[in-house]
Amino acid sequence: MTSRSEATDTTPLPQSIALRAAEDDLQMLRVRLRTVAEFIHDPAYDFGARHALAQRLGLPVPTPASAAWQTKEATR
């Protein structure tokens, strides 16, 4: 039987604190990965650099923009 003070104790367990910290770290890493993926697939940046970064990180490599798209963007 547990005492009344033990049953109403709301102090987080050390495991739950560690789990919350791990979940926060994971969320931060997901945001960073999304930012990197957006950069890799943004044709405004150098294709070679984006391609090399994607390969280095093991992410899907970007496809080169079509010549028509590049010409259209250059005339803006």
Score class of each variant (00 low, 15 high):
M1A: 05
T2Q: 14
T2A: 14
T2D: 14
T2M: 15
S3P: 01
S3D: 15
R4T: 02
S5Y: 15
S5I: 15
E6Y: 05
E6N: 14
E6T: 11
E6M: 09
T8V: 15
T8F: 07
D9H: 00
D9S: 10
T10W: 12
T10M: 15
T11R: 14
P12D: 04
P12V: 08
L13D: 07
L13R: 13
L13G: 11
L13T: 14
P14T: 08
P14R: 12
Q15V: 13
Q15Y: 06
Q15K: 14
I17T: 10
A18E: 11
L19C: 04
R20T: 11
R20Q: 12
A21Q: 12
A22H: 10
A22D: 09
A22S: 08
A22I: 12
E23Q: 12
D24G: 04
D24Q: 14
D25G: 08
D25R: 12
D25A: 10
L26I: 03
Q27R: 12
Q27Y: 09
Q27N: 11
Q27C: 06
M28S: 12
M28T: 10
L29M: 02
L29T: 01
R30S: 05
R30P: 00
V31N: 10
R32I: 00
R32D: 06
L33I: 04
L33Y: 05
R34F: 06
T35F: 08
V36H: 00
A37F: 03
A37P: 00
I40E: 01
I40L: 00
H41A: 00
D42M: 06
A44S: 06
D46S: 04
G48P: 02
A49H: 08
R50A: 00
R50C: 02
H51M: 04
A52S: 05
A52Q: 09
A54R: 03
A54C: 03
Q55Y: 07
Q55V: 04
R56F: 08
R56W: 01
G58F: 05
L59S: 02
P60H: 10
P60W: 04
V61Y: 00
P62I: 08
P62W: 02
T63W: 01
P64R: 14
P64H: 04
P64T: 04
P64F: 00
A65L: 06
S66R: 14
S66Y: 01
A67R: 06
A67Y: 04
A67W: 06
A68I: 11
A68Q: 00
A68G: 05
A68C: 04
W69L: 13
W69Y: 10
W69V: 13
W69P: 01
W69A: 11
W69E: 14
T71P: 01
T71Y: 11
T71Q: 15
E73S: 09
A74H: 03
A74T: 03
T75D: 13
T75G: 01
T75I: 06
R76H: 13
R76F: 03
R76M: 11
